[in-house]
Design a protein around this nucleic acid. Structure first.
Lengths: 325, 325
DNA sequence: TTGTATGCGTTATCAG
DNA sequence: CTGATAACGCATACAA
């Protein structure tokens, strides 16, 4: 492989001049610049990026940590991240973790090893205490509704949004409300549970643990939910679900159980993905792509200012009324 | 940041010994090894990965090129790739291209610049001639039904599969068959078109260009298709569509047009994603995740043997009969 | 405007 | 088993 030294020799200049040309620095005479460019073209030179990284001390690579890329919520975030990253000439390194802490740590270790200029956690399983150990490893941003003040975070206000949704269901006459969560112990789920508890207390309704369904993320989970519903002694009149996928699963299997929506059961979900539009699902929109973009901007901000921010960024949500409530 | 030199000094050994310990080389006395490990632990040393990469000449990073991550087909491939990559301690660098050649070239340039140890094209827009220029840059694998013999490729036999699907529709009494494609000029689409042409000729049916729909990829595209169908003078009795998403879109909007499936129109699609199961879509299964896994294995093979293979790998497909034909 | 010399942090070579 | 030293390829103070 040819190096800048080879180029320098062939073009009759110094390596510095070659480097300057390569990096579009000023103070290079047109003549020499041309000579260098010519040689580069001739021998089809490409610079060794590892050497650039080592020398500069950074890489333009950022890590994206998520449990599963094959889910609309996460692939939407990544799409947002990707769009913004391209603008800033950043490359994305994907960490599909299945919520295994070891995999999440891998990303953090690479951050510390300076392979990554920053890490975006779309969701996480590792504890806060572990995360804090990497506080100084580089920029980290969390896409979750977080109360901590160590890392920047990015989310809709889940508690408020969930309360808002409950109020909407209540305004439609529902008091018997069941709900689903993606991951019971996830930060966002905790907020949702809290909102539920508060609101049920207000209503004077009991908290029925059998009306809280964990690990509901996919369209398949929604379908299975309908089966579980059959075995419920006391049935709710409304379902407030994790996301549009779950809602879609419910809708698609409602017919076989002779359940009419919204007459028998109302469905309210989160996200507002295309499927919600097509199936007429009433949902609370989350600006998922926007979250991705802001996450990248946050990383860049930390990188440029060389400072660790811990800004909590709250994004707006809004109700999209359609036909399931 | 601490370096191995610091460690060496603190532990009273040479940098070589430190390096040996770091890389689990033999021929290090337990005593020195322990001393080194102790210092490493104490100062919380992490090695600089750029330096490792520069020194070793490779990076354990592979590029994944795709138009859009937010589509079940592509996120499934990536999931397969990811699963296999983890086993081999490879990290994935994502290139979301929107089929812009410049973005695809970026991945290839990084391959040439040795940042990437290999590149997997899940789909591509650049021409073959351009691609060939990177033949020697490193391992490249194509997830497409390809006739070329320069790069390894990985796909179901699209022409055969499409013929098979047509035969199935024909066996069910259909001869008026329309179809959709993701990208008219994509390699896989070309095969499908070819199969269609052949089969229609056999049947003595004319090729109606208005029965061929391009750019159908998403659930939304499927929905729009139903609207377009209304304006067709002569209507088909069956639709053979790009993937399950399109099929789902059709099914979900059929009702509003008072179209019964399969009575009025039969639907056959590709992929066999979860939504096909839930909606009862008859589909031709493509082992998408498997493709991702094999792609990684192919890259690794090239890397290890230091040889460019050009093996064309053909994966099996199979019909999943459900309720739409 | 140009070039020399040195640093970036690790691994590999080879002599001991 | 151990260590000095030379790569790896580029960027950049500093000197000219």
């Amino acid at each position: 492989m040819a190096t800048i030294r080879d180029i320098a020799k062939l073009a009759g200049v110094s390596v510095t001049t070659v480097s300057r040309v390569l990096n579009n620095h000023p103070y290079v005479s047109d003549k020499k610049k041309e000579a260098v460019l010519k040689v580069i073209e001739e021998i089809n030179y490409k610079r060794n990026i590892h050497a650039v990284h080592l020398s500069k001390g950074f890489s333009n690579l950022i890590g994206v940590v998520l449990p599963k890329i094959d889910h609309p919520y996460f692939s939407s975030i990544v799409e947002g991240i990707s769009e913004e990253a391209i603008k800033h000439h950043l490359q994305l390194v994907l960490f599909q973790t299945n919520y295994e802490p070891a995999k999440e740590l891998e990303a953090l270790e690479l951050l510390r090893g300076t392979l990554l200029d920053g890490v975006i956690f779309c969701s996480r399983a590792i504890s806060f205490d572990v995360l804090k150990e990497y506080k100084n490893a580089g920029p980290i941003v969390l896409c979750e509704d977080s109360d901590q003040s160590h890392f920047p975070s990015l989310s809709i206000p889940h508690e408020q949004a969930f309360q808002f949704g409950l109020d909407y269901l209540i305004s439609k006459g529902h008091t018997k409300i069941a709900f689903t969560l993606g991951r019971m112990e996830g930060p966002n789920s905790k907020k949702r549970r809290k909102a539920y508890k508060t609101k049920m207390k207000e209503l004077g309704e009991p908290i029925r643990s059998e009306w809280i369904f964990d690990k509901c993320l996919s369209i398949t989970d929604g379908k299975q939910l309908m089966e579980k519903l059959q075995h419920l002694e006391k049935k709710p009149t409304a379902f407030f679900v994790t996301n549009d996928q779950v809602a879609a699963g419910i809708l698609l299997s409602a017919e076989q159980y002779k359940i009419k929506i919204p007459q028998d059961i109302a469905i309210l979900s989160f996200d507002n993905q295309p499927i919600a539009d097509i199936m007429g699902i009433t949902t609370i929109e989350i600006p998922i792509r926007k979250m991705g973009k802001l996450a990248v901007q946050s990383i860049i901000h930390c990188k440029e200012k060389r400072e660790q921010t811990n800004k909590k960024m709250t994004l707006p949500f809004r109700l999209i009324e359609r036909k399931t409530v």
